[in-house]
Structures are given as C-alpha cells and as structure tokens.
C-alpha cells in the first residue's frame, strides 16, 4: 500500500494541480474581459444596433472566426514567436497564457454576442426612451440582463480551458497535463495518469458547480 501511494508522487501532483488552477484562473479572467469586450462590440456594431458599423463588425467577426477555428495545439505552436516576445520564454505556466487566452476569448465572444441578442429589444428601447446614454445601456441593461447567459457561457469556456491547459502541458507549460504525460505516460506509470485524470475531473466539477450556482441566483426570469 505504501508503495502504491508512493507511485502517485503526491508532491508533484499537488504542484501540478496548483499550476493548472493558476493557468485556468488567469486565463478565465482574461477571457471573460476580452470576450465580453469583443462580444459587446460584435453586438453593438451589428445592423440596427447603437453603433451600427458594417466594417468594424466584419473585421471583428473575421478575427473571431479565424482564431476560433484553429485547433488549440496548432495555435500554441503558431504563437511561439509571439509568446517568446511577450513572456521571454516558452516554458512554464505563464508561457501558456497567451495561447490559452487567444484560443478561448473569441469562443466566449460569440457566446456573449448570442447572450446579448437574446435581450428583448423593447427593454433597450425603453431605457433609451428614459434618456439613457450608451454607457447606461451597456452597464445597466445589456450586462445585467444577460448575466445568467454570460455566467453559463464562461462556465463552459472555463471547462474547455482546463482541457486546453492539459494540452499546453504536454509541450512544456506544466500542470496536470504535463504531469500525466511526463510522469504517467512516458514512465509507463498508469496510476499517475489515472490520478491526474481524477484531479482534472474534480476541478471541472467544481467549476461546473460554481457556474451553475451563480447562473441560478442571477436568473430572476
């Protein structure tokens, strides 16, 4: 039994978990902010909306579609020069962040756009009829009224990001993916692989639970 527990390499596992949680949290926060901004721009510049602008809308739309379509593992490789300039290295958790954020933010931007489109146009018009300016409409109407969808969207995105961190781990970013690949797969230690999987599952379940909870309490419909 002692032998079995030793095989898991607890210290390394804990460290890997910390790295995964670190990468996921930073990238979720950045994805939320960038995705929200891009999603708002996509929505507001669309036809019939406050900042209607076909050119800006098409440019953002193309960028979002391109980055959303590139498989993540290829995106990391493509971004190596960019990451090196930005972070100075391409190893470690921080080096994974640019690729994680650039991979996930466009995906979330589309979710934000869909969430905003679900808002009843009459409500936006009503607030304009009360003299609301664009800032009021964005911060007092659009974001609060779409909050449950924004939260459930970021929950889904966060769970994909956990998966992305594992992929990033394989090429040197650290975290549970790295741990499972290096200590488990390459050393033929399937107990480590299984443990890493369980650890990732626990993280995913916790994210889902928190996301569902906040979606539920913000939804007053």
């Amino acid at each position: 039994m002692d032998n079995f527990l030793e095989l898991i390499k607890w210290e390394k596992l804990i460290l890997a978990m910390k790295e995964t949680i670190y990468m996921t949290s930073i990238s979720v926060i950045a994805t939320f902010l960038i995705g929200l901004l891009l999603g708002l721009l996509l929505f507001l510049t669309a036809k019939g909306n406050m900042w209607e602008n076909k050119l800006v809308n098409s440019i953002i739309s193309v960028i979002v579609n391109v980055f959303r379509s590139i498989p993540f593992i290829i995106l990391i490789v493509l971004l190596i020069p960019f990451t090196k300039i930005l972070v100075g290295t391409m190893l470690g958790a921080n080096a994974a962040l640019p690729a994680l954020i650039i991979g996930a933010a466009p995906f979330y931007a589309r979710m934000v756009e869909i969430a905003l489109r679900e808002i009843d146009r009459g409500v936006i018009e009503a607030s304009q009829s009360m003299g609301a300016n664009n800032g009021h409409v964005i911060f007092k109407v659009l974001i609060p009224e779409s909050m449950p969808a924004l939260i459930s969207g970021i929950t889904v995105t966060a769970i994909s990001l956990v998966g992305f961190t594992a992929m990033a781990g394989v090429i040197g970013a650290g975290g549970l993916g790295h741990f499972a690949y290096l200590e488990g797969f390459q050393r033929n230690n399937s107990i480590v692989t299984a443990t890493a999987t369980v650890a990732i599952l626990i993280i995913v379940f916790i994210i889902q639970f928190i996301g569902d909870y906040f979606t539920k309490i913000t939804d007053k419909r």
Binding site: D120, V123, A126, S129, G131, N133, K140, V141, E145, R221
Partner: peptide, 27 residues
Amino acid sequence: ISMIFQHFNLLWSRTVRQNISFPLEIA
C-alpha cells in the same frame, strides 16, 4: 417625455423598487 409600452419592457433582473429607480439613476 416618458413612455409606457404594450409589453411593459421592465428589466427582469431588477426588483420593482430597482426598476422604478432606474430612470432616476439615469438622471
């Protein structure tokens, strides 16, 4: 010049009190 609507157009994320307070916040 305020307006009321056929489908009310209230903010569902706000309570009655907060909905009525909305135009005051804007002002």
